[in-house]
């Protein structure tokens, strides 16, 4: 009877440890989820003031002048380029949902990496899109890369 107590204790300890680990993991995920939600909310406000005039409130674009932001595949395949398009603009034809668009887009150099991360997190999680959030680090890396491309090695 007495010998069983340590075993019981050990089992309890293991269970407790397991529970707290799960709890930690859970709160970590919650924090990530919460941060993403915050980025989406901030991104929506920025989108409305910086992007909506052209791309429209529902991301549907305008005739063949301005492309929609509803092409999830394009957004995913060009994930690394999106930050640079917002910062430096774009002056080359693109195909969205099979339609060619080639009006230039002007960039907005006043937006910070954090603001771009928020806008991109919003765009890639609105208009029928559902993708991972953009972190400031990811956006900063992308911006550093395209600045190198622009100024040359």
């Amino acid at each position: 009877m007495m010998r069983r107590i340590p075993a019981l204790l050990a089992t309890l300890v293991i269970i407790a440890a397991g529970l707290s680990a799960a709890g930690l993991l859970g709160s970590c995920q919650n924090e990530q989820e919460l941060l993403k939600k915050k980025y989406i909310a901030e991104g929506m406000v920025l989108y409305r003031s910086q992007c909506q005039n052209c791309h429209q409130i529902d991301g549907t674009g305008f005739e063949k002048l301005i492309p929609p932001l509803t092409d999830t595949l394009y957004l995913r395949q060009n994930r690394d380029r999106l930050a640079c398009i917002i910062r430096y603009g774009m002056d080359e034809p693109i195909v969205i949902h099979g339609q060619l668009y080639d009006q230039p887009m002007i960039g907005n150099q006043r937006l910070t990496a954090m603001e771009i991360a928020e806008i991109l997190t919003y765009i890639t999680n609105a208009f029928g899109n559902k993708q991972e959030m953009f972190t400031i680090e990811e956006v900063q890396r992308a911006l550093d890369r395209c600045r190198q491309e622009q100024t040359g090695p």
Partner: peptide
């Protein structure tokens, strides 16, 4: 102007 990011797209949508 064609590269206008502010009110022109809204105006053009209305004019259309």
């Amino acid at each position: 102007f064609t590269s206008c990011p502010s009110i022109c797209p809204i105006m053009k949508k209305q004019m259309l």
